[in-house]
Design a protein around this nucleic acid. Structure first.
Lengths: 170, 170
DNA sequence: TATTGTTATACTCTATAACTATA
DNA sequence: TATAGTTATAGAGTATAACAATA
């Protein structure tokens, strides 16, 4: 239907703009809270949170990169900061010496625990409270569908690395 | 109900994480497109788009700041770049000499027109296509409700400036 | 005195390319 | 040769505080 339309209709644009504005406002508020209460950036918190949920509190750099999008060097930079702060440790992986296994420390878990209440508070105030439980459920369901779609179709064309794969067209 | 709950339940967290991830992925893609096709950052595009829709293609710096969130100095910086590029003009406001009236130029409008198709394309691919029209409508409606809520209750506590207002408690 | 905007400055973050080491 | 990660470096962007000018 929307195949050769030069633009999007009003509803579609509204949804897009609202999504971006809401996302930015929440992100901004969350980053302020994380910085104030835990001296963490949003990215750093994401890394720690991801490790918290991982088996053994560990993951390889590559796994983390998949969840944080950023460039590898950017991840190395952030991991360096977290390491220096004693919130994670890094060591060569056991099975593959090329890999680095990142592990969250007790201090790291404590830091997450420290900022989590405030973090949750911000999310609740900005996103959860203004919606009925039912609407929030709907929102989540729809967004998860979008997310899965986006994960399945990564930055087509980008990623000179990591995608490697089958069809080398040169 | 969720009054003294220490955390959010799984559904609520899912919605939050999905929102942030989708927002970040789209923003990232959009910024790449804007940079590649129009040599614009996302913020710069926002400013130009806002001016495009304003009467006379003009707005005061303060009006722009309200729509872009960032600090005033950040806005001045971005406006400086747009000015240097010939995409906007700045001059003291007629009615209030303190204010700066920013106006989009023909070149500015042309630049917006140039990047818009690709911009719309990205949004369609990432957000519109994977959803039914109905789901997208629902998504938009819910997010708009959240957005209005957030706009009504600005960064409570923040903004030493601009909020001025009634109750000076000192 | 309050408000609008700019400037100076310091800092954080991200990306690109070159490089090392292991598979 | 391909993959995992780091390093060096450069550039963009943001925020804070001090400042100038008008209301």
């Amino acid at each position: 239907m929307t195949d050769d339309a030069p633009g999007l209709d009003a509803d579609q644009l509204d949804a897009y703009f609202a999504l971006m504005e809401v996302g930015n406002l929440i992100q901004h508020a969350v980053e302020q809270q994380l910085r104030a209460e835990g001296d963490l950036s949003g990215v750093q918190f994401s890394i720690l949170a991801q490790l918290s949920g991982a088996p053994g509190g560990s993951a390889r750099m590559t796994d983390l990169a998949d969840g944080v999008v950023y460039s590898r060097s950017g991840l190395t930079y952030q991991a360096g900061l977290l390491d220096k702060a004693g919130l994670i440790t890094r060591r060569p992986s056991a099975d593959d010496e090329r890999s680095t296994t990142v592990t969250i420390t007790d201090a790291g878990r404590a830091r997450v625990a420290r900022v989590l209440p405030g973090h949750v508070d911000v999310v609740r105030q900005m996103l959860v409270d203004p919606l009925s439980r039912r609407d929030l459920g709907t929102l989540g369901a729809v967004l998860i569908r979008v997310r899965d779609h986006l994960r399945a179709a990564p930055p087509r064309s980008a990623k000179p690395r990591s995608r490697g794969g089958s069809a080398k067209d040169s």
